[in-house]
Amino acid sequence: MTSRGDDPPRGLSRRAFLRGGAAAGVLSTGLLRGVPPVEAAPAAAPKSEAGVPILGPGPVAIKLRVNGQEVALRLEPRVTLLDALRTRLELTGAKKVCDRGTCGACTVLLDGKAVYACSVLALEAQGGDVRTVESLGSVERMHPLQAAFVDHDAQQCGFCTPGFVMAAKALLDRNPSPSLAEIHHGLAGNFCRCGTYAGIRRAVLQLAEAGAANPDYAPGLPGAPEPGEIENPRPRRQKNKKRKKPRGTGDG
């Protein structure tokens, strides 16, 4: 465990925190379900081809930065970020619903951007800053966005709710005062079955109007290379170009 201090990262249970430690070899009690303690792992000779290390298919050591804390795990390459969060770190706020990158219930922020945790390999999330709904607010001290969801009853069974909260967070971080059309566009990657969309858009609109979207949490944005190097950033504007948005498509 490379984290500072002894407190579990926000949102991580102490048990999960310790398990992370177990995997990293600090403890060797095999607490980490399904993943043998480091000592028990076969000392596989490091493979490489074309000068590139080949990892797996068995468990490999990985480090994730989750809700501001670094955790070390041993996982097979096929384990998704969602499964790592839910079954290895007991961060169950992100839900597994479609598991195919469509429904949005597993939405987390990776380097400040909303992504489907079911469609990112845990290995590929290394070096990124992962934020789950657990990082946003607690029952006692909800984030204003979460409070707005409660106020507007933007939830029923609640299974899609954490995903919607995170998608809305990403939207508001980028655009603190979205229009209704922009809210529809920004939350187009999330589905609800109980039919809570009416409350959700009221909740997000309230924050949009209040401009209170981002009072106490600014996502770190390390790592991600921005599309670079624009050698001539001022092209001629096309006169005849139609910029009208086609009908029958997304409204944002």
């Binding site: 081809e49 074309a50 590139v52 080949i54 990892l55 490999v60 390459p77 096929r78």
Partner: peptide, 10 residues
Amino acid sequence: MRPFDYARPA
């Protein structure tokens, strides 16, 4: 998913 191995070339 079936098991696979993984490489991350530079």
